[in-house]
């Protein structure tokens, strides 16, 4: 796991007793844990408990606390590896301990929330199609040719459905089917690697 220089600066400020008071430190930790674990329904009350006069430093410390917890959860660090990671930064030992405790408490929820993020490929649930024979059109006359009108019915994450429409010739459709089969074979091959 790596954290950027910016976040390192904030982290050092967070764990410096002369910059962030004990009460503020606690409030920042609680706030970041609550923001990260109660996604979308966070309790913002801890921010009003901040007493420090220098709001900019507190904001920096808070930002780095949030980033640190997120990154650690993303990298699936255990509590012990998290604490050994922090030890490299020469932080105040009591604050380090607090950080580890907070991390241990909220890591699972953060990971749950991280799992929500996916690339959202459309999920095809149904297909409608019709085969048209085009005898003549304004752009082309001549002998008729066959056209497939295909409509994929897709379900998106929020349960609303959408459609994907396209028109293709028979050859194009055949090619697409071949490509899909090919992709399927490749995926199965990868899945069977361990056997």
């Amino acid at each position: 796991m790596k954290i950027s220089q910016e976040i390192t600066v904030g982290l050092k400020r967070l764990c410096n007793k002369s910059v962030v008071s004990d009460n503020d430190f606690q409030a920042i930790l609680r706030q970041s844990a609550s923001v990260l674990s109660n996604y979308g329904a966070a309790d913002d009350s801890y921010i009003s408990q901040l007493e420090g006069a220098r709001k900019d430093t507190l904001k920096e410390a808070y930002a780095s606390a949030v980033t640190l917890l997120t990154e650690a959860a993303r990298n699936d660090l255990s509590s012990s590896s998290f604490s050994s990671f922090l030890e490299a930064y020469n932080l105040n030992p009591s604050r380090l301990e607090e950080l580890v405790i907070i991390y241990a408490n909220c890591v699972e929820k953060i990971q749950q929330n991280l799992r929500l993020f996916n690339h959202c490929l459309p999920h095809v649930v149904d297909v409608k199609w019709r085969l048209d024979c085009c005898v003549k059109s304004n752009s082309s006359g001549g002998p008729g040719y066959l056209l497939y009108f295909v409509q994929f019915l897709c379900q998106s994450p929020d349960k609303s459905s959408s459609t994907i429409d396209f028109v293709c010739t028979v050859e194009q459709l055949r090619e697409m089917v071949e490509k899909l089969k090919d992709a399927n074979r490749k995926v199965e091959k990868i899945a069977n690697l361990t056997k």
């Binding site: 950027s4 996604y39 921010i47 980033t67 990154e71 991280l114």
Partner: peptide, 28 residues
């Protein structure tokens, strides 16, 4: 920073917070 910059989680919609935090760190 001290007067107007919102706290990190208030800078964006909650749906974008975690990706943004990850990107922030990676960019850094």
């Amino acid at each position: 920073c001290s007067e107007q910059l919102p706290f990190l989680h208030e800078q964006t919609d909650y749906r974008h917070l975690l990706p943004s935090v990850i990107t922030l760190n990676s960019r850094g």
